[in-house]
Simulated scan of single mutants.
Amino acid sequence: MAVRTALTERLGLELPIVQAPMAGVATPALAAAVSNAGGLGSLGSATLDAEALAGQIAEAGSLTQRPFNVNFFCHERPQDDQARTAAFRARLAGYYAEENLAAVPDPGESYLPFDEARLAVVLEARPAVVSFHFGLPRAEWLATIREAGCLTLATATTVEEARALEAAGIEVIVAQGWEAGGHRGTFRTPFERAQVGTLALVPQVVDAVACPVVAAGGIGDGRGIAAVLTLGAAAAQLGTSFVAAAESAAPALYRAALAGAGEADTRVTRLFTGRPARALVARYVAEMTPHETEVPDYPLPGPMVRPLTEAGLKRGVPDFHPLWSGQAARLARAEPAAAIVARLGRETEAALHRR
């Protein structure tokens, strides 16, 4: 494929394709396979402590000599609203009884914000790309990462957020459309005003900032990649397509749910982590959506829901699993990551030549 962009040139990529980080699903093997195939693989590191983070970066580095991305969440530590926690605990109690589980555990922080310990790992490992979700870390940390030679990316869901990221020194903006699976990256704009579709968001962000823009959200094949390249994006980021990859950590029930999903089978929900995220609608999401106002702040609900997720895994049912997915789930194919990247490249070239 002959399409060259500012991002492919900067990183030496063969294809303008970025695998979304997807904490808990992306593995070092997946990231390395995507990078080896000519795209940019990514590690989702928001659930890892410093030791585990160093291990994953080292493992990915042992599997590829090409650039890969290491992604972090940036969020304020939450305050536990005891009344809301009690209400949420009461809602979960019936499910716990049904699954023969002990009492609902206390809330906790299953997703970790970027901190000094993770900064130290980054500065030691110096991955080619470091990216952030939910805003940015401290300005001095960001400057140190850039000085170490790492290319910095961050997510925006509005033009306002994109401008703020560029002003703070971020070198590449990931414009996340409303169609995207997983956590919404909104950090500055009120959530209700940050529900802009990918094809509307990308050209407006491209016009608003001077740095390269990566398009994310609802892109599931080469036609989508060609579309966002035409709109001015320097690359496309795909997540749901790589959940189906052979190298992902997605369990069988997740893969089966994805294989049977259509474009209308997802919903943005706070029920798993306390923060809006798009997932396939299984039993828990369907039944608990009317009670979302009782969910504790991000990321406190995670440990409260996890025993239900694990119980469902043991029974082989997706009822309580966070089935993160974008609206293009129907386009995902169960293939090795290298085959997915190669197919996407062929489809993109064909779509661009049809114009």
Results as ranks from 00 to 15, higher is better:
residue 167 A to Q: 13
residue 203 P to K: 02
residue 289 T to F: 05
residue 173 I to C: 04
residue 244 A to H: 03
residue 230 T to G: 13
residue 253 L to D: 09
residue 108 G to I: 13
residue 138 R to L: 08
residue 206 V to K: 00
residue 205 V to Q: 02
residue 24 G to T: 05
residue 326 G to I: 10
residue 94 G to Q: 14
residue 67 P to H: 14
residue 313 L to E: 02
residue 226 A to P: 03
residue 151 L to S: 04
residue 196 V to Q: 02
residue 192 E to T: 11
residue 265 D to A: 12
residue 116 E to G: 14
residue 287 E to H: 12
residue 57 I to W: 06
residue 208 A to R: 04
residue 313 L to D: 05
residue 179 E to M: 03
residue 291 H to Q: 09
residue 175 A to D: 07
residue 69 N to Y: 04
residue 42 S to A: 14
residue 80 D to N: 11
residue 161 E to H: 06
residue 102 A to Q: 15
residue 194 A to T: 05
residue 264 A to E: 15
residue 129 V to H: 03
residue 317 V to M: 11
residue 246 A to E: 14
residue 66 R to M: 08
residue 105 P to A: 12
residue 93 A to L: 14
residue 148 A to E: 07
residue 246 A to T: 15
residue 107 P to A: 10
residue 110 S to E: 14
residue 321 H to G: 01
residue 105 P to M: 13
residue 53 L to T: 01
residue 43 L to P: 04
residue 264 A to V: 08
residue 270 R to K: 12
residue 153 L to E: 07
residue 341 V to G: 05
residue 307 P to K: 13
residue 165 L to K: 05
residue 170 I to N: 01
residue 94 G to F: 12
residue 308 L to N: 05
residue 119 L to A: 11
residue 317 V to Y: 03
residue 328 A to Y: 01
residue 232 G to K: 09
residue 251 P to H: 15
residue 271 L to T: 09
residue 35 S to E: 04
residue 353 H to C: 14
residue 233 A to Y: 00
residue 50 A to P: 00
residue 283 R to L: 13
residue 94 G to T: 15
residue 48 L to C: 08
residue 341 V to R: 07
residue 80 D to L: 12
